[in-house]
């Protein structure tokens, strides 16, 4: 798994590649949590993510909780049908905005 984090204005965009399982989820957490402490919008680009297990959902939950505490939001981009199914099954889907592209995620309110 690989994470590329960049800042656009006050937004943080994290593009993730590969699998988010119990092996890689801690790395994802360490790449994202420290850099989002002042941001109000986090965009997670999952276009190149091939697999997400409950360990990955746990990281999403931590990001969500941090943002929610200061009225921010987490926008997911490029969520595959399979990952969407997993998020639906677990009731996670309702808490994230899902956008087709990073550009739309940046301009979403």
């Amino acid at each position: 798994m690989k994470v590329t984090v960049k800042q656009v204005d006050t937004n943080i965009i994290a593009a993730v590649e590969g699998s988010i399982d119990s092996k890689t989820a801690p790395d994802l957490q360490q790449s994202i949590l420290p850099v989002i402490s002042n941001t109000h919008k986090v965009i997670l680009d999952l276009t190149e993510v091939t697999f997400v297990s409950s360990a990955g959902l746990r990281v999403l939950l931590m990001v969500y909780r941090q943002l929610k505490a200061r009225d921010g939001k987490v926008v997911l981009v490029g969520v595959s049908e399979e990952i969407r199914d997993v998020m639906f099954m677990t009731g996670f889907i309702a808490f994230f905005d899902i956008c087709p592209s990073v550009e739309e995620a940046l301009s979403s309110k």
């Binding site: 409950s54 746990r58 939950l61 677990t90 009731g91 808490f95």
Partner: peptide, 16 residues
Amino acid sequence: NKPLEDRPIGGLGILL
């Protein structure tokens, strides 16, 4: 159905 901030996180893997 609980909001994510109140959600127990254990057992999710077994459910999946």
